[in-house]
Simulated scan of single mutants.
Amino acid sequence: MKALTWHGIEDVRISDVPDPKIANPTDAIVRVTSTAICGSDLHLYGVLAPYLEPGDILGHEFMGIVEQVGPEVATLAEGDRVVVPFNISCGRCWMCQRGLFAQCETTQNTDAGKGASLFGYTSLYGAVPGGQAEYVRVPHADFGPIQIPRERPDERLLYLSDILPTAWQAVEYADVNGNDTLAVLGLGPVGQLAVRSALHRGVGRVIGVDLVPDRIELARRHGAEVLDASDTDVVQALRDLTEGRGPDAVIDAVGMEAHGNAVSEKVINATRRLPKPLARGAIEHFGIDRLAALHTAIAAVRRGGTLSISGVYGGMADPMPMMELFDKGLTIRMGQCHVRRWSDELLDIVSADADVLGLEGLATHRAPLADAPDLYRLFQEKRDQCLKVVLRP
């Protein structure tokens, strides 16, 4: 089969690889009909190179048709249409019983000190072949895959795999209501869906912040107030809009890709090019992130407010303003999305007649899987107003 494989820093290729096979009785084989490039995939394209091997299959946002099921999969049958959550969870362990599916103890990567395994996401998270491929082996298919209606187009449903529940969880963690103001830092795909989710849930006021003009305008069109961070003191502007206090909650939907710190940029670029053993040690013990967005969120949120972090961070030596965090009495919630915790509620929303979250119009670029290498670079460089890429194997 054809698959998108990693071969080095900013080097991904379409390769011929062996077709996946049933390995365990709870596996399924899914023929992929749509897969997407996620902002998190850009971390693999560059920063997390030390945890990848040439030939690793990337991608964790995908959906398709069940082609084969293992003997212990009673919940699916051949021909079922499914969306597959990016994190792999068993649904039965101590963590899963508490809705903490991203920490599943059955697929947890204890040797690496990490949570549940993820599709297409490095040796830190199980080195499970990903979904930017024609076919995928889906472990724990007796629990994970979400059965979806046949009459809705793929792009109404595809984002249930990651970015929609990630945005929904970010708003849930922000703990805001109709009387509150929520700021969303970063208006990439997750930030856009966080804006739409917050407004759909009745949050009183939503302010989106970004540097990219087309992303700012898109959030405005969907009902958010907006700030352009390229020519604005974001912290002061947010305070000015909220009687000097700051928003009740701030979502950081940017993560380690934030701009604004030339020193950390140089350190990260140097680290990722070290020999793998040295690079892994540097990341695991001394790694830092670009923290401009996170520090902005901490400074902007009101005293006693909530900081919700959906952007991915990977540093182990990040300098944090602990005095400010403590003095302001902030609540902080973060982490990988527990997709199956929100999937039933979200499936009801996206299956309705009206596309209330504008999912069918989110993708800016649609292309065959063969074009994936070029689109990775386009997405990374934010050219051609690229917001979301959907690929069809």
Rank of each mutant, 00 (worst) to 15 (best):
F286G: 03
G281W: 15
V389P: 04
P25G: 12
D248N: 14
I57D: 04
I148V: 15
A370P: 01
S230T: 15
Y125R: 13
L199I: 08
A367I: 02
D374I: 09
S161N: 08
A372E: 01
L294I: 01
T35K: 04
A279H: 08
E360K: 12
I268E: 11
N179M: 10
D111W: 06
K328C: 03
D384G: 10
L274R: 13
K114W: 10
P368H: 03
R13Y: 02
I268S: 08
I14Y: 05
F62V: 03
M316A: 14
D111M: 06
S123Q: 04
R366M: 01
L241K: 12
V356Y: 01
E257D: 09
S40F: 09
L187Q: 09
A112C: 08
D228M: 04
A28P: 06
R273F: 05
R239H: 12
F326N: 10
E67N: 04
S123H: 11
D210F: 10
T75S: 08
S351G: 04
I29V: 02
P189S: 15
V128E: 00
R280W: 09
V235H: 04
A167V: 05
A282F: 15
K276A: 15
E257M: 14
R205Y: 03
L347F: 13
P393Q: 07
K388T: 03
N24L: 11
N179R: 14
T106Y: 15
L375A: 03
A224P: 07
W342Y: 13
M322F: 15
A363C: 04
R196A: 01
I288R: 14
I207L: 12
A299W: 12
Y45P: 06
G204A: 08
A36N: 00
Y135V: 03
G315I: 05
A116K: 07
R220W: 06
G329Y: 11
L291V: 07
N87Q: 11
I37N: 05
N269F: 08
D231W: 15
L325Q: 03
I29D: 00
L357T: 05
D355L: 08
E225G: 14
D16H: 04
R383F: 13
A229E: 03
N24S: 08
G287V: 12
L48W: 13
E217P: 00
T107E: 07
P54Y: 07
D384T: 07
L58F: 09
Q108P: 04
T331N: 06
S310G: 05
T122D: 10
R215T: 01
E78G: 14
R302L: 07
T296Y: 02
G126A: 02
G178R: 08
T331P: 03
A370Y: 05
P368G: 01
R205W: 11
L274G: 06
R81E: 13
E217M: 14
G188E: 00
L160R: 00
L52K: 11
A317Q: 09
L52S: 08
A258P: 00
H200S: 15
Y51M: 01
V17T: 02
A49W: 02
R333D: 00
Q108R: 12
A352D: 15
I349N: 04
E151Q: 15
R340I: 01
I9K: 08
